[in-house]
């Protein structure tokens, strides 16, 4: 058994010895008050089968062995669903892969010997905690502003009481797939969270369960987005291009239609909110 493990270790050591080399420039910032700077590191013996984060792990391990403090970066599930990881790699949120998170990026996508620049998400609403780690609690506050249906536990009708067409359920799922990573904000030249807001508004807006609060949801979530300091959408579609779940900007068009619908129905003086 342990012979197998040794063989495993021997083989991979051999592969790493002939591995790739990169020059990494990594954003170091001790805390929110530190202005921060790019610091260059050499990553050697990198296997093309390593994920980008494993390459960073390796580099950090080496730094620690040398007694240097490692740099901080967020990650958790490392399978592309939790939304915890997120780095701007050579100017692109989540790096060069399409439809992937940073953790699902493999080193074989990079040219051996190249220079890779790694920065955190940058936005006023996402202040840097340390190095490559940012605070995304603004997203939680946007959801708190209406990204739910007000149904207490126990008061739900039978699940099949309301029929929902397959197409409608799929449409809702497309929007609900958002993992809240913040790449949309990071890539937007205006640091706007419009795609994040729109995906939630559409997810609940197309389902019958979301109808009772549909009218105020878009308004309150949007207001919160602005209060948190995100910018405005100027329809460049960078967000959709970097989104690991490939959420379409048609969600934003939907949100815009919701807004117009609200304006139009405001004039008919119907009550906007039926209180809980």
């Amino acid at each position: 058994m342990s012979a197998g493990s040794q063989a495993e270790a021997a083989v991979s050591t051999e592969r790493r010895a002939s591995g790739m080399t990169f020059t990494l420039e990594i954003w170091r910032q001790r805390n929110a008050d530190d202005p921060g700077r790019m610091v260059a590191y050499e990553a050697t013996r990198v296997s093309p089968d390593m994920s980008f984060l494993e390459m960073l792990d390796l580099l950090n391990e080496e730094l620690m062995r040398k007694g240097e403090e490692p740099f901080a970066f967020d990650s958790d599930c490392r399978e592309g669903i939790c939304g915890m990881c997120g780095l701007v790699i050579n100017g692109v949120a989540h790096g060069p892969g399409t439809g992937t998170t940073t953790c699902q990026l493999y080193m074989r996508l990079f040219k051996n010997g190249s220079r890779i620049r790694v920065e955190p998400w940058r936005a006023r609403a996402f202040p840097v905690v340390r190095d490559l780690v940012v605070d995304r609690s603004a997203f939680d506050r946007i959801i708190q502003a209406g990204g739910y249906t007000s149904v207490n536990t126990g008061s739900a009708p039978d699940a099949n009481a309301t029929l929902i067409s397959q197409a409608r359920a799929e449409e809702a799922m497309d929007s609900a797939a958002c993992i809240g990573c913040g790449a949309c904000v990071a890539s937007c030249k205006n640091a706007s969270a419009m795609l994040f807001v729109a995906a939630k508004v559409k997810h609940l807006g197309v389902l019958p369960q979301g109808q009772p609060e549909r009218r105020q949801r878009g308004v309150t979530m949007l207001e919160t987005m602005q209060e948190e300091g995100f910018g405005n959408c100027t329809n460049e579609y960078e967000c959709e291009a970097v989104c690991p779940k490939e959420i379409s900007t048609s969600n934003i068009a939907f949100l815009n239609r919701e807004y117009i619908r609200n304006l139009v129905s405001l004039s008919s003086l119907r009550p906007l909110v039926t209180s809980e």
Binding site: E119, K189, N190, F230, N232, C239, A241
Partner: peptide, 18 residues
């Protein structure tokens, strides 16, 4: 608004979208 939303800019910026 948009300028205020990103007080610290990227050192490297690239476009992959529109």
């Amino acid at each position: 608004d948009n300028r205020r939303a990103r007080p610290v800019g990227y050192r490297v910026s690239a476009s992959v979208g529109g």
